[in-house]
Nucleic acid binder design. Structure first.
Length: 410
RNA sequence: GGAGGGGUGGCAGAGCGGUUGAAUGCACCGGUCUUGAAAACCGGCAUGGGUGUGAGCCCAUCGCGGGUUCGAAUCCCGCCCCCUCCGCCA
C-alpha cells in the first residue's frame, strides 16, 4: 500500500513512477485523490457533528429532559447519516488505495538487465529427469495428485534434507532466525503481503475453512510482526523460513512440463528481513549476496538479472533474479529471486518500529529465496552430472549429510 | 465436536449505562534530593485519523464487526482468539 500522504503531497512523482508499470496506473492515483478529497470533506462534517453531540451530552448531568432528548436524538441521527456517507466513500477509497502497486525504485530496470555473470555456459548434458531416473517419480506422482506433482525418492530425499540443513547453517551464520511456519493462512496475510489481489489465480484455496495454502513462506514470515511496533534495537530482524509452497500454475499449461522444474508443490527455505527504511537498499544487496554465495557453494554458473519494472509484481520496488545455467536445457533459468518491497507490505500489515525520535514508522521488508526442493535440485543434478550419468554433489552438501555421488540412473 | 470461563494502555489489574482515553500498581523517561547510586518525592508516558505554519483543537479506539440507547469499556447479536474440562486424534 502506498502512503496516502505522499500521494497528496506529490502526486506527479508517484504518477510518473507508476507510469513505468503501465499506462493505466497513473489514472488510479487521480481517482484515489478525488475519493480522498471527498472523504476528507465527509469525515470533517461527520466529526464536527459528533463533536457537537459530545458537547451537548457532556453539558448535562443525569437524564435529559424530553426536550433535550429530542434535540440530542436529532443530532445523533444526523451524525449517523453523515457517518454512513463517509463510510461509503472510505470503503471505495481504500479499495483503490489497496489496488495501487508499489512505486518502482529509480534503479529498477526498464527491461530485464543482466548485471553480473559468474561461471561458464559451455556445459551441456542430460536433463535432471534423465539423471534422476526413478528417484523422481512423475508417473506415480501424477497418479496420486495429478500432473506437476512428483515423488522424490531415495537419495534425492537425503539430498533435499542436506540442502535444507546447509541453507539453515548458512543463514543462521548471517543472522537469520530459523522459522517453520504454518502454510495454511487467512486471507488477511495474503492481502498484507500484496499477494491478493495480485496473484489470486496462483493460489490454492480451502473455502471450507476460509484458508489459503501459501505460495511461499514469505506470507507467513511477513505476518510475524503484523500489527506490531518494534523497538529500534529490534531491527534488523531476519528470518529463515522453511515451508512447503503451493502454486496452481494456472496459465502455465504446457510450459516446463518435464520433471520438477515447475511443480504445484515444493519445499523452500526463504529469507525475510524487517529493516529500518534507510537500510533496505543495502539489505537487498546483502540478500542477493547470500543467494550468490549459495550458488557458488553449490557450483552453479549463473547470472544476476535486474528485473524489468513491468514484471515486478505488486509489492516489489525492485527485484533481482538469479538465473542458473542448466546444461540439460542449454539455457539460463530462474532459480531464486529477491525483492525489496520497501514499506508496501509493512503498511498493509501495519508492521512498524519506534524511531529514536517522533512517531512510529513503517519498517521496510525484503525477501529472497535460499534453496528449493525443485529448482535447486534440478540445478544440482544437471550441473554435477558426469559423463557416465552419475552426479557429483558439492562438498557443502556432503558435509550436511548428502551422498557424495548419486549413481547413474538405471 | 460438547460444556464452561475469559479478552481493558508496555505489563499487571479496577471499572460493568452518564466529564472513563479509562482508577491503581509496576515498568519506562525527565526533575528534586545524593559525592555517586538506591530509596523517597514531583512531573511525564497509547495509537490512528481530520484540521492548523504552529502551540493546539477535534474525532475515533477497552479483541473485531453489527445492534439497542440522547449516551456503551459497561446491555444484545455474530465472528476471532485464549484458558479449563470432556470427546476425538498425529
Amino acid at each position: 500500500m502506498l502512503d496516502i500522504r505522499l500521494l497528496r503531497a506529490d502526486p506527479d512523482s508517484a504518477k510518473a513512477a507508476l507510469r513505468r508499470r503501465g499506462p493505466a496506473e497513473p489514472a488510479k492515483v487521480d481517482r484515489l485523490l478525488e475519493l480522498d478529497a471527498r472523504w476528507r470533506e465527509l469525515i470533517a462534517a461527520a466529526e464536527e457533528c459528533r463533536a457537537e453531540q459530545n458537547r451537548a451530552s457532556k453539558a448535562l448531568r443525569g437524564a435529559p429532559t424530553a426536550e433535550q432528548r429530542s434535540e440530542l436524538a436529532a443530532l445523533s441521527a444526523r451524525a449517523k447519516e453523515l457517518t454512513e456517507q463517509e463510510a461509503t466513500v472510505r470503503v471505495e477509497r481504500e479499495a483503490v488505495l489497496l489496488s495501487l502497486e508499489n512505486l518502482p525504485a529509480a534503479d529498477a530496470a526498464d527491461a530485464d538487465t543482466v548485471i553480473a555473470t559468474v561461471g561458464s555456459t559451455q556445459q551441456r548434458g542430460r536433463d535432471h529427469l534423465d539423471l534422476a531416473g526413478p528417484r523422481i517419480d512423475m508417473e506415480r506422482g501424477a497418479r496420486l495428485s495429478g500432473s506437476r506433482f512428483a515423488y522424490l525418492r531415495g537419495e534425492l530425499v537425503l539430498l533435499e534434507l542436506a540442502l535444507i540443513r546447509y541453507a539453515f547453517t548458512t543463514l543462521v551464520g548471517h543472522g537469520f532466525e530459523p522459522v517453520s511456519p504454518p502454510v495454511l493462512v487467512r486471507e488477511e496475510a495474503l492481502i498484507g503481503t500484496g499477494m491478493l489481489p495480485d496473484t489470486e489465480q496462483q493460489l490454492y484455496k480451502v473455502p471450507e475453512d476460509d484458508l489459503y495454502l501459501v505460495g511461499t513462506s514469505e506470507v507467513a514470515l511477513a505476518s510475524l510482526h503484523r500489527d506490531e511496533i518494534l523497538d529500534l534495537t529490534d531491527l534488523p530482524r531476519r528470518y529463515a523460513g522453511l515451508s512447503s509452497c503451493f502454486r496452481r500454475e494456472a496459465g502455465a499449461a504446457g510450459r516446463d512440463t518435464r520433471g520438477i522444474f515447475r511443480v504445484h508443490q515444493f519445499d523452500k527455505v526463504e529469507m525475510f528481513s524487517f529493516v529500518e527504511p534507510s537500510r533496505s537498499v543495502q539489505e537487498h544487496e546483502r540478500i542477493l549476496g547470500i543467494e550468490e554465495q549459495i550458488c557458488r557453494d553449490l557450483g552453479f554458473s549463473y547470472r544476476v538479472v535486474n528485473i524489468a519494472v513491468n514484471d515486478l509484481g505488486a509489492s516489489a520496488a525492485k527485484k533481482y533474479d538469479i538465473e542458473v545455467w542448466l546444461p540439460g536445457q542449454g539455457q539460463y533459468r530462474e532459480l531464486t529471486s529477491c525483492s525489496n518491497t520497501t514499506d508496501f507490505q509493512a503498511r498493509r500489515l501495519d508492521a512498524r518500529y519506534r524511531a529514536a525520535e517522533g512517531k512510529p514508522a513503517h519498517v521496510h521488508t525484503l525477501n529472497g529465496t535460499a534453496v528449493t526442493s525443485s529448482r535447486t535440485i534440478v540445478a544440482l543434478l544437471e550441473t554435477g552430472q558426469q559423463e557416465d550419468g552419475s552426479v557429483v554433489i558439492p562438498e557443502v552438501l556432503v558435509a550436511s549429510g548428502a551422498p557424495a555421488v548419486l549413481d547413474a540412473a538405471v
